[in-house]
Design a protein around this nucleic acid. Structure first.
Length: 785
DNA sequence: TCACGTAT
């Protein structure tokens, strides 16, 4: 005999309210049952799909199959039925009310397909014991559950929820334990309720859990209030998901919050493509199309997005507007702040230095440079010497030039000069690997810009940069290499952390690939004409007649390339079929190039692909090249039994910075050993002071990928004797001048492009190239912020 | 599912 708690039980455990509220108590077309979960037969944690056995209560208004047949059980005992459906979390012992439809499964017989369910308070001692002991409630296991139930009986749940202090009556439970138990139960019930609600609107359990972690018990209220907040607050949920939830909640197609969120989403999408702002007209047109509303309907929402027109909806809280309108340009607020802040900081850094230049005829520094050259055993060209002098005499300087123009040489002399003058210098770069190269080139410590600015977790504030105008970097000069990789937000963080009086020197090649994030500050700073720029054009490294060098310049100008000159260093093999391209790449790498250059096919040849996927992408080519260049030895089974995805001898690349191992994203090495027992892998990396062998445990090998072929993006900042570049029209999206330029300039001795003429032409024309919208150059010229 | 960086 069971008694279902009448109405809403005193402890609030009956969870009728946990059901999506749009559902009525009984569905006319289905069945409803109440029972205790006996056993979980099957469960898929990824989507919550569960098959369980439910021991059905006697008189709870159960609706049985209309043909009168009893599903399972007997006429006399409690019926045990199979229920099937999606349950975000379910524990043995839980008491459920389920709604659903009877189906006859060919293999498993009659079962209830559950469309909705609610957790009901377990009302029997046994039910409560099983529920609490299920392990689903943090802090309570079977033993403790037993003790609690033995003491409080059917009142147990009521006691925990309402008068947790009474838990102290149970021997062995102290105040802390009592608190933990109450909290555990409350939390579990909260999660249950939220899970059911979110599930009802088509959100996967994984996301539901994430949402609950952030919104807590406030979840249902907040999601109902404005589902579009999810897109902003929950990582991984974008506008599209939020829009789906909104639709399910019945939010109108032209509801103001939908349109505001849609506009915001368009701005974010533009930022992902590198744009700092979007013109009002383009924003409204594109958003109108995407949202399926007339452009005119967006005028008011746009006003609300930029913080105007509070009359539309009274502000609920004093939240800063998401966007800023400046004339016809609409910015995301964060990017507007970054752009104006960067301009202001740079202008402030350049101020006051003019006076120094006038007072100082430069003689003092000229002498210092000459001394430094001597000390370093380097003779600079006049162009290079001028760059060093400019760096010493200006607040901000850009040094830009392509590969081989001597940026590293300048860096060394400049550093010597500054240090001899007793100045403190800080070296940094946007990537860990570039910082590592800087360390090697200068013999001085160099860090990522993030580490320089002490990016890290601050209690109660999340992640942020801890160096800023209030706590600037202690240095007389900050030198940043590979500055083309700085995006607008990072450049802003950097500039604001530099005190007036500290020199900022940005070194980079502005023709390489644009940064990952929005904006292209190095390009804009140069274009503004406000900051002195030292342009290095003279190429020392490669012979004048090198086609690699001259073709690199042709690429930048969009001109046709000079190809296949006998004895030359720049070849094009025409090939239209992607499969044939892949085969040609393999043959070149494995056979022809090693012979032609008398070099090692793995160490000295690097295949670069514009993409990862496609038949000529890095993933496929890696498989092909691994088989060709490092075939399995012997024909026995893989000695590691498939535990290790690599073979001894494989060329591999580290894919994220690992300071503990001192290996950085983009480092390439060779597998020198594998332990088939433990799955450990040893990789040898070349280092200036001799190769280093690094151990990876089985769990760490996911930091590595095969590197016979890598993407052009990953190759940025590296050089190789020979480069092979597959180029097909399947790479359409990626065919840009910067990409071709970057790929080609990675090669010291030889470049071979394999692909279609059309693809090459597309890349030269930069057909897909989109100028990044940015107002930084104008702002710098305007002199104001 | 274009590609790419940083941080715990």
């Amino acid at each position: 005999m069971t008694q279902e708690a009448p109405g809403t039980p005193p402890n609030g455990l009956a969870m009728a309210s946990s059901r999506p509220e749009h559902l009525t108590e009984d569905k006319p077309d289905g069945s409803t049952l109440v029972g205790v979960v006996q056993r979980i037969t099957f469960r898929n944690d990824a989507n919550g799909y569960t098959v369980a056995r439910l021991a059905v209560d006697g008189e709870t208004g159960a609706v049985w199959p209309s043909d009168g047949s009893l599903p399972g059980g007997s006429l006399f005992g409690p019926a045990v039925v199979t229920i099937v459906g999606r349950f975000p979390s379910l524990a043995v012992g839980e008491r459920l009310r389920v709604w659903g439809r009877w189906v006859d499964h060919p293999q498993f017989g009659r079962q209830l397909e559950v469309s909705d369910y609610a957790v009901v308070a377990p009302a029997t001692v046994e039910g409560i014991r099983r529920y609490l002991g299920s392990g689903l409630i943090p802090g309570i296991g079977p033993v403790l559950a037993e003790r609690l139930v033995a003491h409080f009986g059917v009142e147990t749940l009521h006691v925990i929820a309402e008068t947790p202090e009474r838990l102290l009556e149970v021997p062995g439970i102290g105040p802390q334990r009592a608190e933990a138990i109450a909290e555990g139960l409350r939390r579990h019930q909260g999660i249950q309720q939220v899970m059911v609600f979110l599930q009802g609107h088509g959100i996967s359990p994984a996301y539901a859990a994430r949402i609950y972690r952030i919104y807590g018990d406030d979840t249902i209220r907040r999601v109902r209030e404005n589902p579009y907040r999810l897109a902003m607050d929950i990582p991984g949920i974008g506008f599209k998901t939020a829009d789906g939830i909104a639709r399910s909640l019945g939010v109108a197609h032209d509801a103001p919050e939908r349109l505001v969120a849609g506009l915001h989403h368009m701005l974010q999408e533009a930022a992902e493509r590198g744009h700092v702002y979007v013109s009002r007209r383009e924003l409204v047109e594109r958003a109108g199309e995407a949202l399926g509303v007339a452009a005119e309907a967006l005028a008011v929402p746009l006003g609300r997005l930029v913080g105007q027109g509070e009359d539309v909806a009274p502000p609920k809280a004093v939240a800063p507007p998401l966007a800023v309108a400046e004339g016809e340009r609409i910015y995301l607020s964060s990017l507007f702040r970054a752009e104006t802040g960067l301009a202001r900081a740079l202008l402030r850094l350049t101020e006051g230095w003019g006076l120094l230049r006038e007072l100082d005829d430069g003689a003092r520094w000229q002498a210092a440079v000459a001394e430094a050259e001597q000390a370093a055993g380097i003779t600079l060209s006049p162009q290079q010497r001028q760059a060093v002098l400019d760096a010493l005499r200006h607040g901000v300087l850009v040094i830009t030039g392509g590969p081989g123009t001597g940026k590293t040489t300048i860096l060394r002399v400049l550093l010597t000069c500054l240090e001899r003058a007793g100045m403190r210098v800080q070296l940094a770069s946007p990537t860990g690997r570039a910082a590592q190269r800087m360390r090697e080139a200068t013999g001085r410590p160099a860090r990522t810009v993030h580490r320089l600015l002490e990016f890290g977790h601050v209690e109660g504030e999340g992640f942020r940069f801890q160096r800023n105008e209030d706590r600037p970097l202690a240095a007389d000069a900050v030198i940043v290499d590979e500055a083309s990789m700085l995006d607008l937000p990072l450049a802003h963080q950097l500039a604001r952390a530099i005190a007036p009086g500290t020199r900022l020197i940005l070194v980079g090649d502005v023709d390489q690939l644009p940064p990952v994030g929005p904006g292209y500050p190095l390009r804009d700073i140069i274009a503004s004409g406000v900051v002195p720029v030292a342009r290095l054009t003279h190429i020392f490294r490669q012979a004048e007649q090198s086609l690699i060098v001259s073709n690199a310049h042709r690429i930048l100008r969009g001109e046709d390339l000079v190809l296949n000159r006998p004895g030359g260093d720049f070849f094009f093999i025409e090939c239209d079929d992607p499969e044939q391209v892949a085969e040609t790449v393999r043959e070149l790498n494995a056979e022809r190039l090693p012979k032609y250059l008398e070099c090692d096919p793995i160490e000295d040849v690097q295949v670069l692909s514009p993409m990862r996927r496609t038949p000529t992408g890095s993933e496929r080519l890696n498989q092909l090249l691994q088989a060709a260049l490092n075939p399995p030895r012997g024909d026995g089974p893989d000695p590691s039994g498939g535990l290790v995805p690599f073979r001894a001898g494989d060329k591999v690349m580290q894919t994220r910075n690992n300071y503990e191992k001192a290996v950085f994203n983009g480092d390439i090495g060779r597998v020198v050993g594998i332990d088939p027992e433990t799955g450990s892998v040893w990789v040898k990396y070349p280092q200036p002071d001799g190769p280093q062998v690094v151990e990876y445990t089985a769990g760490e090998t996911d930091e590595l990928t095969l590197a016979y072929c890598i993407t052009v993006h990953k190759s940025q900042g590296s050089e190789y004797p020979a480069v092979i570049l597959p180029l097909t029209t399947q790479h359409y999206m990626m065919l840009q001048r910067n990409l071709l330029y970057t790929a080609v300039t990675r090669a010291r001795r030889l470049v071979v492009i394999v692909g279609s003429r059309r693809a090459l032409r597309l890349a030269l024309k930069g057909i897909r190239e989109e100028e990044r919208a940015s107002g930084l150059a104008e702002r710098l010229r305007g002199g104001a912020a």
